[in-house]
């Protein structure tokens, strides 16, 4: 019996020396398969699909910020050709209307951005325009948050953020694309 227990003792010792090797092997496998790239992008909410004809609501033209992008990737904003570099400033000025001009939005709540593109418009341009419009709203919200609470939007608690979003809502309507341009 004594001999047997001694034998047991020897057998019970698991060799842990190779444990590191096994762990290394697994580690290298996971290192190789890991993709660290995070997915980012412009978050957009599409309007629900409906088959019935949309209700024709009369909008005051002063409240509509129309942006047209043609198949040559050129912009027409409220009837004037505009470069994308000044689109953000234009949009901000229109939404806020600091001088209370007759031809700009009555208030940020009533401002509507209407975006229309051609089927031949390049996706990069479309996204750039979308990005600028979103940026205009984000900047306005940041300014409003600074004015009201002395903080940036991202530093505010959710309920205060919602208040500002309610006062400066992003209302973007996308019209059916035209099909003048050539599709690739």
């Amino acid at each position: 019996m004594a001999r047997k227990s001694a034998k047991d003792k020897v057998n019970n010792e698991v060799n842990a020396g190779s444990m590191a090797d096994i762990a290394f092997l697994l580690l290298i496998f996971f290192l190789v398969t890991t993709t660290m790239d995070q997915d980012k992008g412009l978050l957009v909410k599409l309007p629900p699909w409906s088959t019935e004809a949309p209700k024709i609501t009369k909008l005051k033209t002063r409240n509509v910020f129309s942006v047209l992008v043609n198949a040559n990737d050129e912009l027409l904003v409220r009837g004037e050709p505009v470069d994308i570099n000044i689109l953000r400033e234009k949009a901000k000025e229109f939404i806020k209307n600091p001088l209370k001009l007759e031809n700009m939005s009555e208030s940020p709540k009533k401002a509507i951005v209407s975006l229309k593109n051609d089927r031949g418009t390049h996706y990069a341009k479309y996204l750039a325009v979308y990005n600028e419009l979103k940026a205009a709203y984000n900047e306005l919200r940041d300014e409003e948050a600074m004015k009201r609470y002395g903080k940036k939007m991202e530093d505010l608690p959710m309920d205060k953020q919602k208040l500002i979003i309610k006062d400066i809502p992003l209302i973007l309507s996308e019209a059916e694309s035209t099909s003048f341009g050539e599709e690739k």
Partner: peptide, 21 residues
């Protein structure tokens, strides 16, 4: 070009997938 993108967007809207990134 936006043609195919618009078609995809319409399909997404038809299937009720409205959150898009």
């Amino acid at each position: 070009t936006m043609g195919i993108v618009a078609d995809v967007k319409d399909q997404l809207r038809k299937s009720g997938q409205l959150k898009v990134n």
